Simulated scan of single mutants.
Amino acid sequence: MEALVPAFVAALLAQIGDRSPWLVAILADRYGKPFTIALAALFAHAAGNAIAGAGGALIAPMLTPNAKQLLIALALIFAASGALWRLKAPDRLERWRLGSWLTAFLGIFILALGDTTQFFTFAFAARGPSPWTAVVGATVAAFAVNLIAALMGEASWRRLPLHRIRVGVGVLALGGGAVLGVSALQLI
């Protein structure tokens, strides 16, 4: 259970300024089905996080404790670099004719594949004795943010101070990643 809360908090902060909630808000407005879109996003994130968790569990026995800490530091630095870049608008998927659920599921799965949340899931799964708690924590956090975005809609979601949130998360993640990385390399 030691990976549940850190994965939840890291994924929550990473998802707030990410493109997947923005796409969820776009699709919720288009289809007028915020709960359907949020549920599809839940399954998309669950699938991606399960892949990341399985990868983390696979490499965990090969890593030393310092290597596991360094992996988390790299995930934080990766999150910081993503948060400090300008956020590009997601593809609106206007040409997709798959229906609300399948469009949302596939669109979010493809958009989120290999994103910051999954890197956190991978790192926390590799660190802890029960990697699936990292999957659950990150997935629940992603669902919470996406549900809020779906209920708010695109216009309201875009009015949030997302740039300030992203910069704050980026600075926090960069500092945490630097401290953990230096400690993992035994430089302090």
Rank of each mutant, 00 (worst) to 15 (best):
A11K: 04
A50R: 08
L4H: 02
F105R: 02
G48V: 10
G128H: 04
A123P: 03
G128L: 00
A47I: 12
A41I: 09
L13G: 13
L74I: 14
L12K: 10
F35S: 14
L98Q: 11
P6Q: 07
A125Q: 01
I59N: 06
F8S: 03
A47V: 13
A138N: 01
D91R: 10
D91P: 07
W96I: 13
W85C: 08
F35T: 14
T116W: 02
F105T: 06
G56L: 02
S130W: 04
A52L: 03
P61H: 08
L113Q: 12
V135S: 01
A52C: 07
R127E: 00
W96S: 11
A28K: 09
G55S: 04
V5P: 06
Y31R: 08
A83P: 05
N66Q: 15
P34T: 06
P6I: 03
A126G: 01
A46C: 11
P129W: 05
A25N: 09
L23S: 14
G55Y: 00
G128W: 00
A138T: 08
A47K: 01
T117G: 06
L98N: 07
A28S: 15
A7N: 02
A47E: 04
R19C: 07
R127I: 00
L87R: 15
F78V: 07
G99R: 10
A10D: 08
A79L: 05
L63R: 06
L74K: 02
W101R: 04
A10L: 15
A11R: 01
T64V: 04
W22L: 12
A60H: 04
E2I: 11
W132D: 02
A44L: 09
L106E: 01
F120T: 07
T117Y: 00
Q69A: 15
P90R: 11
L74Y: 05
G128A: 08
P131V: 06
P21Y: 12
V135W: 04
D115A: 12
A89F: 13
A38L: 07
A112D: 14
H45T: 10
M62H: 15
G32D: 13
F78D: 03
T133A: 09
A57S: 12
G114Q: 10
I16F: 12
K33W: 03
P65N: 13
E2A: 10
L76W: 00
D18C: 10
R95D: 15
P131H: 11
A112Q: 06
L23P: 09
G48F: 10
P61F: 09
F109I: 08
G114N: 06
F109K: 09
G107H: 03
